[in-house]
Simulated scan of single mutants.
Amino acid sequence: MTVDQWYSYYDGLTLTAPGGLDIDHTVPLAEARDSGASAWTTKRRKAYANDLDAERSLVAVTARTNRSKADQGPADWMPPLADALCTYATDWVATKLR
């Protein structure tokens, strides 16, 4: 029997039950809207919200950590795990550029 595991790189926790996970938009939808996505077509906004083509856009993280982030960007929120800071900043910039 295998046990599924999910690693939340924001806080360094490994979960074995998906109920403790959220799927986080690296760049929150509200922040994207406030920084220009409000001018996008509905089709483009939906594509961004459901972007499965870039691993950096949507990440599985602990629900608690994702909810502490809410709609904040890096100026107001960074992952609590020090080892995640560079990855998060890189993912943020790559997502914004994409």
Rank of each mutant, 00 (worst) to 15 (best):
D34K: 01
P79D: 07
A37N: 02
E31F: 03
L15D: 08
T65G: 06
G12N: 01
D22F: 12
V27E: 04
L58V: 07
Y88S: 05
R98H: 13
T65R: 13
A32F: 05
T26W: 00
Q72G: 01
L13W: 12
K96H: 14
A82H: 11
V27C: 03
Y88A: 04
W77F: 08
M78Y: 01
R45K: 05
A84Y: 12
T65S: 15
D53Q: 03
R98V: 06
R44F: 06
A70K: 00
P74E: 08
V93Q: 15
K46D: 13
C86W: 09
A82F: 05
V93R: 15
E55Q: 03
A49V: 01
D91A: 10
S38C: 09
Q72A: 03
T90R: 14
D83Y: 04
W77Q: 01
D22V: 11
R44T: 15
R33E: 08
T41V: 07
A94S: 10
P74W: 05
T62V: 02
L97K: 14
A39V: 10
T16G: 12
D24I: 06
T65A: 13
P79K: 05
P28M: 05
A70G: 00
K69M: 01
G19W: 08
G12Q: 08
P80A: 05
G36M: 03
C86Q: 14
K96Q: 14
A49N: 12
L29D: 10
T26C: 00
T14L: 03
V93C: 08
L58M: 10
E55I: 07
R98C: 04
L29V: 10
A47Y: 02
P74F: 06
R56Q: 04
G12D: 04
D71N: 14
K69Y: 00
K46W: 08
A47C: 03
A75N: 09
V93S: 12
K69F: 00
L21A: 02
T95Q: 07
G73A: 13
Y48P: 07
W92E: 06
D51W: 15
D53P: 00
M78E: 06
D71A: 11
A70W: 00
T65Y: 08
V61Y: 13
R44S: 09
P74N: 09
A94T: 11
P28E: 06
A63G: 15
W6H: 13
W77S: 02
T87K: 15
Q5L: 08
W40R: 07
W92K: 09
A39M: 09
W92R: 14
